[in-house]
Amino acid sequence: MLRRIAGHLFWAARYLERAQWRARLVDVNYHLILEVPPRDIDPWEPLLGITGEREPFAQRYAHADEASVVNFFTFDKENPSSIRASIEAARTNLSSLRHMISSEMWLEMNELYLESREWSPDTLESKGFAAFFTELRNHFYAITGIVRSTMPRDLSYDFLEIGAMLERADNVARLLDVKYHYLMPRLEDIGGPSDGRQWAAVLRSASALEAFRKLYGYAIRVDRVVEILLFDASFPRSARFSAERLTAALARVAASAGGPAAAPPAGEKLLTMLRSNTASDVIVAGLHEYLLEIEQECAAVSDAAYADYMALD
């Protein structure tokens, strides 16, 4: 496989995962506000903290309110991480490698892109918030499903997997980092009651609420939220699960060279971190520092994979 193609697959998957992630964030926040009317601070502003985009946002918007933040995350062509821009970036990456992916995947991607070109804040109005985001989420599920059921498990699949899983692990860490500080400032509150609905919203952002209830029952405890989002080996959107798949894909790519097994693949350290810790360990030792380390490790894996398989010079 060409290095450039590997790069396109990697980035296409990252952008798709990012768009999907942004959509969850906006959708869940919107419904949270309906359930829990905001008190003092505007409930949309913290989202910018999660994605680390306060600065680019402030450059072009005066106030962080529902209209501006939703627009920034969803429709804004100038924001390279908006859902619209991410869809376009994913499609641009895929368009130069249509011969590497299934035609079904291309058709679905192209359809989503054509739809997104027609979007405007009015679309949200006319379709209804819930319907718009449900439809969008179904598009992403369709693409993921098509990839799984039509693409041979070869290098192209592996590079999609590497991109998607890196983005996912990184996003989970960011979500938890910001929400944790925002919702749970004091150590002694751990294990105690908390704002259940806020944490339920966090879980829903990661599609983890049902899985949580199945594992732990109704009561939401913060350490358990951390446990399922970071360390659970069976929940498909946890950081651990993502790291497992990431590392496996990296190992397959390394093995496909056919030579003797080289050094352990780049994801090994990240995986060890997530396999050998528990929620209570890391909360006591400092969750923020731990999450920061995960984010840094994701960046390191990304850099290493790029240098090994994608860089052209």
Binding site: L2, R4, L155, S256, A257, Y309, L312
Partner: peptide, 18 residues
């Protein structure tokens, strides 16, 4: 694309993952 290619020792190559 051009960036995928390299000429080495008067031979033509493409840059692959491996």
């Amino acid at each position: 694309e051009g960036q995928d290619l390299a000429c080495v020792d008067h031979k033509l190559f493409m840059k692959t993952v491996h």
